[in-house]
Lab assay of single mutants.
Amino acid sequence: GSVVKEKKEKALIEVRPYVEYYNELKALVSKISSSVNDLEEAIVVLREEEKKASEPFKTDIRILLDFLES
């Protein structure tokens, strides 16, 4: 629970300088966080969101995924 939350919060802070739609990304992460149990599940849902998103938000999600998977 809290470790996953920390990882996601740290990821958002780390990617902030590189993303165009930070507030939207943060809102998406919050929405996903409330419906998943762990980081792996969150990553799966983020990948689905990435497929549906259009640029440049798609790239923002990709940047976040790269950080979460590192």
Rank of each mutant, 00 (worst) to 15 (best):
G1F: 00
L12Y: 02
K10V: 10
L68A: 02
E69V: 10
E20P: 01
R62M: 08
A53H: 13
E41P: 03
S30H: 13
V45R: 14
E49K: 03
E40S: 10
L65R: 06
K51F: 10
S54F: 11
F57E: 01
E40F: 10
I32S: 03
V15G: 02
A42L: 15
Y22A: 01
K52Q: 10
E69K: 09
P17W: 08
I63L: 06
T59F: 05
V36T: 12
Y21Q: 09
S33Q: 05
S70M: 12
S35W: 13
D38M: 06
N23M: 13
R47S: 08
I32C: 12
E9V: 06
E49I: 04
R62C: 10
S54K: 12
K8T: 15
R47E: 08
E41T: 08
V15Y: 02
E9N: 07
A27C: 05
K31Y: 08
N37T: 09
L65K: 03
Y18T: 14
S2K: 07
V29S: 02
E14N: 07
V36C: 05
I63M: 05
E20L: 07
P56F: 03
E50V: 08
L68Q: 00
Y18W: 05
E41A: 09
L65G: 04
R47H: 13
R47N: 07
N37V: 08
I43S: 03
S54G: 07
E48F: 06
A27F: 06
Y22T: 02
V3R: 06
T59W: 06
K26R: 07
S35D: 10
A11F: 05
V15K: 04
F67R: 05
K52S: 08
V3W: 00
V15P: 01
E9L: 12
Y21W: 05
E40N: 09
K52A: 11
V45A: 14
L64Q: 00
R16Y: 15
V4N: 12
T59G: 11
A53L: 04
E55Q: 08
V45W: 08
I43F: 08
L28I: 05
E20A: 06
R16H: 12
I61A: 00
S35M: 13
D60C: 12
R16E: 15
R16P: 15
K58H: 03
S35I: 13
S33M: 13
D38S: 13
K51G: 10
L65V: 12
K8D: 07
K52L: 09
L12S: 01
N23Q: 14
K52V: 08
E9Y: 05
E50P: 00
L46E: 00
P56K: 05
V19M: 02
E49H: 07
E41F: 05
L25M: 01
A42N: 03
L46C: 02
F67A: 13
A53R: 04
S2I: 08
L25V: 02
K7F: 15
A53N: 07
E6R: 05
K5H: 14
V3T: 14
K51V: 09
S54M: 09
Y22I: 04
L68W: 05
N37Y: 07
K8L: 15
K26W: 07
L28G: 01
E14F: 03
V15T: 03
I13M: 09
K10P: 03
I61M: 03
E9S: 05
D66S: 12
P17A: 10
R47Q: 09
E9F: 07
L25E: 00
D60H: 05
I13H: 08
A11T: 04
E6H: 03
N23A: 13
I32K: 02
K10F: 07
K5E: 14
E69R: 10
N37F: 07
S30Y: 10
V15C: 15
E48N: 09
R16Q: 15
Y21F: 11
S30E: 15
I32V: 12
R16W: 15
L12N: 01
S2Y: 00
K26H: 11
I63C: 04
L46V: 02
L12T: 01
T59N: 14
F67N: 08
K58M: 03
V44F: 07
A53I: 04
G1P: 12
S30F: 08
S54R: 07
K51P: 02
V15L: 11
L25N: 00
A11R: 03
K7Y: 13
L28N: 01
E49S: 05
K52H: 09
E14L: 03
P56Q: 05
A53Y: 08
L64W: 02
V45M: 14
V15S: 03
I43L: 12
S70T: 11
E49Q: 05
V3A: 12
S70Q: 11
I61P: 00
I32A: 04
E41C: 05
I63F: 06
S35N: 11
I63S: 03
K10R: 13
K26T: 12
K8N: 15
R47M: 10
D60S: 05
Y18G: 14
S33D: 12
V29H: 02
I13K: 13
S70H: 12
V29K: 01
L39H: 05
Y21N: 15
E41V: 06
Y21T: 02
V36M: 05
I13F: 02
F57C: 02
E24L: 06
K8I: 15
V3D: 14
F57R: 01
A42C: 14
V3E: 13
L39D: 13
K5M: 14
D38A: 07
T59D: 05
S2W: 00
S34I: 09
L65T: 14
S54H: 10
E49N: 05
P17L: 05
V4S: 10
A42Q: 09
K52I: 08
K26Q: 09
E48K: 08
V44G: 11
Y18R: 15
K31G: 09
L46K: 00
P56M: 04
Y22W: 14
R16F: 15
K5I: 13
S54E: 13
E6Y: 00
Y22R: 00
E69G: 11
E48L: 09
K52D: 06
S35H: 11
S35E: 14
V36K: 04
A42V: 15
L68H: 01
K58F: 01
